[in-house]
Design a protein around this nucleic acid. Sequence first.
DNA 1: CCCCTATGTGACCACCCAGTCATACCTACG
DNA 2: CGTAGGTATGACTGGGTGGTCACATAGGGG
Lengths: 197, 197
Amino acid sequence: MPKQTFFNLEPEKRQAIVEAALQEFAEHPFEQASLTKIVDSCGIAKGSMYQYFSDKLDLYLYIVDLAYEQKKAYVSRAFDSEGDIFAVLSEYYRLSYQFALDHPLLHQVANKFWDSRSPLLQTELEKGRLSRAKDFARVLAESMAEGKVNPGLDPEAVFFVYHAVGKELIDHFHQGCDDRFLQQVLDVLKFGLAARD
Amino acid sequence: MPKQTFFNLEPEKRQAIVEAALQEFAEHPFEQASLTKIVDSCGIAKGSMYQYFSDKLDLYLYIVDLAYEQKKAYVSRAFDSEGDIFAVLSEYYRLSYQFALDHPLLHQVANKFWDSRSPLLQTELEKGRLSRAKDFARVLAESMAEGKVNPGLDPEAVFFVYHAVGKELIDHFHQGCDDRFLQQVLDVLKFGLAARD
DNA sequence: CCCCTATGTGACCACCCAGTCATACCTACG
DNA sequence: CGTAGGTATGACTGGGTGGTCACATAGGGG
């Protein structure tokens, strides 16, 4: 968590720091991101950064959280949308893609975070995964109760699959992602590989 | 490609180098792996390494290739196994898991390679992805011809989904992976989320 | 005016890195 | 023996890193 000093800053200076950090963390994973470059690029002294944040990790987690919260706010309307679970999921990924287009830096930061392997980040990662799983589980449980979803499936396995595909989809956003392909991927998940009678 | 000098080495020395490198690259992605640690841990001089490999990347690609080839050899029998595509896929992931247990270092090296983002590695990554896609496409095409597979699906989207889920599964091998869960994940892919009549 | 506190600063520290190179070593051949 | 070519070596270079600290600045209250 940033120190109080950080929040005492004039907003524009705070913004400059956030933007410089976003830029760096969008480009490099935590370990390879350079604090030196961040302070250089936003024109503050190295020492000042340590008035605002206790260390590099503190800054990183603040930035990731910021990106993640913005994404959540952007994308969560999908869960309120009408229609069955398939409509919700389709909307969810469509919004995720839109977010990536609208806020490329935030998108990349959040995205890079998901494939961090540093032990320092494992607890944070697990926290994020759980929060996602909860939203998903709710929608899935509703649909299962309504009988629209294959009742033989294990909810955990379903979440696992959607999480995996979602990650990969989002990874591929940078190569563009026409709606048609997105729909086809969702169809694979919806109808399954086995032929239907 | 290693230099000739490397292949002139006594096999046990070569092996020591390979093992030290495997250890380091299993633990850290390319950029964070330390050549210095590798040479220290196998007891050769820094300069010697540059008699064998032109640079760090050269060594890395050699090691990754080695890991990848061993994995391919181990896992490819799945494609020769009898039964429909679902049996093949099940066997494929079972073998992948077995490989991870039998050769944890090779597994981790190959696995870390897949989520490299370094521009230096993009062409190599694409090569690997294509080679995997080809094997998969063959089996899929056969099954589609036989009518066992949902004909409405886009083969590219199918591969995309399986690639994503496979990556995530393999990522989670280190947490253990009972056969039951694996089967349930495959069922999600096989039967799809939508209820069947 | 001074003092006190909060904040800004950048030279500096200790460390780590990939890659180089002059030198030494080791054989094998003439 | 000498010499030539392949190989081993590790001190060294130049560059990067996160983090620190003694000092400078600023502003408010007495």
